[in-house]
């Protein structure tokens, strides 16, 4: 994973609550066996009309939302299935951060493991962000704050290890493999030997 230290972008807003992973990427596209190229399928059934053209009612199709890397989404974003195809699709589509008052556990975990910043802010700050689409934000991972256009700061907290991995591009599998001795000891102690 490449280090992620700071993201600067305008925001796009999807205000719906409970945007589930089926909406982020419909299940019929999960027959892929790779991680690549899922951006064109992101929000597929919301984003396109039946004839394949862009749905003008989909907020991210608005001209001012194009190119935005920070998504402000309604509460409980990413609920539902554990498909990691959801963060893969969002990243490939160009989203680098999701800001929300509450993010579903599995999605948040999957997102952070792929360098997609899944960040929870307070309800009041969330409401304010939902009401102000298109503002320029800087997300500082090291300082754990979001810088607003007026210079104000909104603090957030990342799980410390996830933050460490983001900042340093740490490979979590590599970290686990370094603990092979502890795993062997555990297996010997519990009779879990192959």
């Amino acid at each position: 994973m490449q280090p992620v230290t700071r993201i600067h972008s305008r925001t796009a807003v999807l205000a719906d609550e409970n945007i589930d992973t089926d909406r982020i990427i419909p299940a019929r596209f999960l027959t892929t066996t790779t991680r690549e190229g899922l951006g064109r399928l992101c929000f597929h059934d919301w984003r396109y009309q039946a004839d394949g053209s862009d749905n003008p009612a989909f907020p991210l199709n608005q001209p001012q939302a194009r190119g935005c890397a920070i998504l402000v989404a309604g509460r409980n974003f990413g609920c539902g299935s554990s498909r990691e195809h959801a963060p893969w699709a969002l990243l490939d589509y160009g989203i680098q951060a999701v800001l929300c008052s509450e993010i579903a556990d599995i999605f948040r975990n999957n997102a952070l493991k792929n360098g997609l910043l899944a960040i929870m802010v307070s309800e009041a700050e969330h409401r304010w962000l939902l009401e102000h689409p298109g503002i320029e934000l800087s997300i500082d991972v090291r300082g754990e704050f979001i810088e607003l256009p007026d210079g104000g700061h909104v603090a957030f907290q990342l799980e410390p290890f996830a933050r460490h991995c983001l900042l340093n591009g740490v490979d979590q599998l590599g970290y686990l493999l370094q603990h092979a001795d502890a795993i062997r000891v555990f297996e010997a102690r519990t009779g879990e030997t192959a």
Partner: peptide, 22 residues
């Protein structure tokens, strides 16, 4: 519990997961 594909790889290689206690 359910996990993502990155974690599927973690379990395959190490039989372990990195977890915060819920």
């Amino acid at each position: 519990f359910g996990i993502g594909t990155t974690e599927v790889g973690h379990v395959m290689a190490t039989q372990c997961l990195l977890q915060r206690k819920p």
